[in-house]
Measured scan of single mutants.
Amino acid sequence: MAAAAAAGAGPEMVRGQVFDVGPRYTNLSYIGEGAYGMVCSAYDNVNKVRVAIKKISPFEHQTYCQRTLREIKILLRFRHENIIGINDIIRAPTIEQMKDVYIVQDLMETDLYKLLKTQHLSNDHICYFLYQILRGLKYIHSANVLHRDLKPSNLLLNTTCDLKICDFGLARVADPDHDHTGFLTEYVATRWYRAPEIMLNSKGYTKSIDIWSVGCILAEMLSNRPIFPGKHYLDQLNHILGILGSPSQEDLNCIINLKARNYLLSLPHKNKVPWNRLFPNADSKALDLLDKMLTFNPHKRIEVEQALAHPYLEQYYDPSDEPIAEAPFKFDMELDDLPKEKLKELIFEETARFQPGYRS
């Protein structure tokens, strides 16, 4: 834990890192770190609560700039109880001085990944967590956004079992017609939660990839272990087919990539493993919904509104309290091709509203 900075004593240090967030945020305490930044909790002297502050230093890398800009653009436009918001952003007053960006968010005690390492969940908890994931996802999908990296560590939890989806750095506007060349190379989302079509096709992607990830998360809540822990690309596919069985001819016809289709045709026939054999203690309604989410063919996979209306979630289902976005989200430009200098300018502009004396 960093010592509390005395008023006016300059930035606090946390594990050798400068955290320049005073005077409003003090009493910093280390939480963890990701690929390009550290997260601390801090005391907000204005709202009198502890908050989470993520320090991001992305400006050396085009990919990190892209992810940072995506996350900020999306989260500043989203407003939903099951999606983490941005409360404040701290950065230098000029673009030349801006080396880091500090993002202030609600402090959540833990995440689903940490929880599943230590606790076996009751059916009631599984049901409530799944409902909140789908409630947040309904809003995301209504904005025409794909999260693309749903996994237990991106689901934040607090002691009252509130759940918030975080990390929109890989999110995209849904565009089933656009052929994202190089899709697989830039697709760094965790393999275990990846839909089979991501490994088999490169053309376009749809909201059904997020539903697949939610199915993987439900299976993990039922058993405290990942359902498809593939060691590499082909191993991942083999794990999936080992449980779902061989795809039907109709399902194979959806695979545009001939090499991928021929690979699947070359494999020995596998039978589907019954879900109640894998999860003998699970609620039968939970397994019915799991089956509809972990469907090989993305066109037959359940959609988020149908999933919310499934009998497993009937005690929570309330369409009048499951809000959607006001308007579909649009990125003005494809960020993939922009140089990091341009992305830095866009991050600077996007964060201006939090600067003292800002006038829109």
Rank of each mutant, 00 (worst) to 15 (best):
A2H: 10
A4G: 05
E12M: 00
M13S: 11
V14M: 08
V14W: 10
R15N: 06
G16K: 08
Q17F: 07
V18E: 10
V18G: 15
D20A: 11
P23W: 00
R24F: 01
T26S: 15
T26K: 05
G34D: 01
Y36M: 15
Y36Q: 15
G37K: 15
C40H: 10
A42T: 14
Y43Q: 13
D44N: 13
V46H: 12
V46E: 11
V51W: 09
A52E: 02
A52C: 13
I53C: 01
K54Q: 06
K54S: 05
K55S: 13
H61W: 12
H61G: 10
Q62K: 15
T63C: 12
C65M: 11
L69F: 01
L69K: 01
R70S: 13
E71M: 08
E71H: 03
I74E: 10
L75A: 11
L75K: 07
L76K: 06
H80M: 04
H80N: 11
H80F: 04
E81Y: 01
N82R: 02
I89H: 11
I90Q: 07
P93R: 06
P93K: 06
I95A: 05
E96M: 01
Q97W: 11
Q97G: 07
M98H: 11
K99M: 15
K99V: 02
V104D: 13
D106A: 00
L107E: 14
M108K: 14
E109H: 01
E109Y: 03
L115R: 00
L115T: 05
T118Q: 03
H120M: 11
H120T: 09
N123S: 07
N123P: 02
I126A: 06
I126F: 14
Y128C: 13
F129C: 00
Y131R: 02
Y131M: 01
L134N: 03
G136E: 09
L137R: 08
I140G: 07
S142V: 06
N144M: 10
L146I: 12
H147R: 07
D149T: 01
K151R: 01
S153R: 13
S153K: 05
L157S: 04
L157N: 07
N158Q: 08
L163N: 04
K164E: 05
I165P: 00
D167E: 11
D167N: 15
F168P: 01
V173L: 12
A174G: 08
H178P: 12
H180P: 09
H180L: 15
E186K: 13
A195Y: 00
P196A: 05
E197Q: 06
E197W: 05
N201A: 09
N201T: 09
S202L: 09
I209D: 03
D210P: 03
D210F: 07
S213H: 07
S213C: 14
C216D: 04
A219K: 11
E220A: 12
E220H: 04
E220L: 06
N224T: 13
K231G: 10
H232G: 00
D235P: 04
D235T: 02
Q236I: 01
L237R: 04
N238V: 12
G245I: 00
S246P: 00
S248V: 08
Q249W: 07
Q249Y: 06
L252G: 08
N253F: 06
A260Q: 05
R261I: 08
L264M: 15
L265Y: 03
S266D: 08
S266F: 06
L267M: 15
K270E: 00
K272G: 08
P274S: 12
W275N: 02
W275V: 05
W275G: 00
N281E: 08
D288R: 02
L289F: 03
L290Q: 14
M293Q: 02
L294I: 08
F296D: 11
F296C: 03
N297G: 06
P298R: 05
Q306C: 03
A307L: 00
A307R: 04
L308P: 00
Q315N: 05
D318K: 00
S320H: 06
D321L: 02
A325D: 06
A327D: 14
A327R: 05
F329D: 05
K330Q: 08
D332V: 14
D336S: 00
P339W: 02
E341S: 11
K342D: 04
K342Q: 13
E345V: 14
I347T: 11
E349I: 06
E350N: 07
T351W: 08
A352L: 06
A352N: 10
A352E: 13
R353M: 11
R353E: 10
F354E: 12
S360P: 14
